[in-house]
Write a protein that binds this DNA or RNA. Structure first.
Lengths: 158, 158
DNA sequence: AATCCATCGTTCGTATACAAACAATTGGCT
DNA sequence: AGCCAATTGTTTGTATACGAACGATGGATT
């Protein structure tokens, strides 16, 4: 009978001797989170196809559509991307004409971001897709399981 | 192709038409999975510090310790890394002298991987750390919530 | 006003991720 | 034997991720 991961953690807290075979990769949260994220990314890229967006680009566009106008770093905070990553994402969205970037008259350190007309149009076209992608990702779970899962997952996401 | 107010009202009543503001990024599985994975990676890198391993390098070493000897692609399947990613991970582990790579006498396409003596030693030293990292990641949840969460997460990880 | 510290965005270096193309090899099928 | 499809590992190109260092600017304190 196999030990649960929690039992192993308990034993480890009691400092019992362990060898490498006590570590079951496929039961570790980190590995499962990585694989679930991989699966979601695959579903995303398959279902978004015609819009040619990555998950991060999609997130940035949706958040910009929501808040209207913000600085790069602020948008990064809202979408959980650090400044360096945000820089690359925005650079590609600007290159595609979906986002416009201009100086902030009130603070010359800042660059204000806005969706272009094309960006607004695209956002409207892909919202539904985004929701379908979320549904597809959660498909293996029942409705009540989905609710439970999302609540617990949110608590591991600060 | 603008919608009339009456069209919008009707669609909205049936919950069929969406605009960008209906998409709440912070409630989408993909975004939450990404953030939870980020948090785990941060915990991992902080707690593994002296061993100087990344999550993938750690996973490859633990799996190698478990199965003993395999080809690169096979190890990739066991750890959910594609061939290109595996190549990079193994290259760095070989450079650090933790993994040894040699030809497979039975199949000249394959490269057989084994942990070096240093690799075996390191594996033994960090198993416990790995389990503590998993525990720390799940810390926000109660014992029963952890079990529930891991079961549901595993079903979203094929 | 002068100074100190925080914030903003950029760049560099390292490490995942994965599609796609590639050469070498293997196994199955005829 | 000969052919063909699949597998193995590498490389290239694009896109996250993030620490660290950097110059420019802002706000606060004295």
């Amino acid at each position: 009978m196999a030990l649960l991961a929690t039992d192993r953690a308990e034993m480890s807290a009691r400092s019992q001797a362990k060898d490498a075979s006590d570590y079951v990769l496929d039961e570790q949260v980190g590995h499962l989170l990585r694989r679930a994220h991989q699966r979601h990314a695959a579903i995303f890229l398959e279902m978004i196809d015609d819009a040619q967006l990555t998950p991060l680009q999609f997130g940035a566009i949706m958040k910009l559509a929501d808040v209207g106008q913000t600085s790069q770093n602020q948008l990064g905070r809202l979408t959980a991307m650090d400044a360096a990553t945000m820089q690359g994402v925005i650079k590609r969205l600007i290159a595609r004409g979906l986002v416009v970037r201009g100086p902030d008259p009130d603070d010359r350190r800042r660059l204000l971001l806005t969706l272009s007309a094309n960006g607004v149009a695209l956002a409207g076209q892909v919202v539904q897709r985004g929701l379908e992608i979320s549904a597809k990702t959660l498909e293996p779970l029942s409705a009540s399981e989905r609710e439970t899962f999302l609540k617990l997952l949110a608590r591991l996401s600060d």
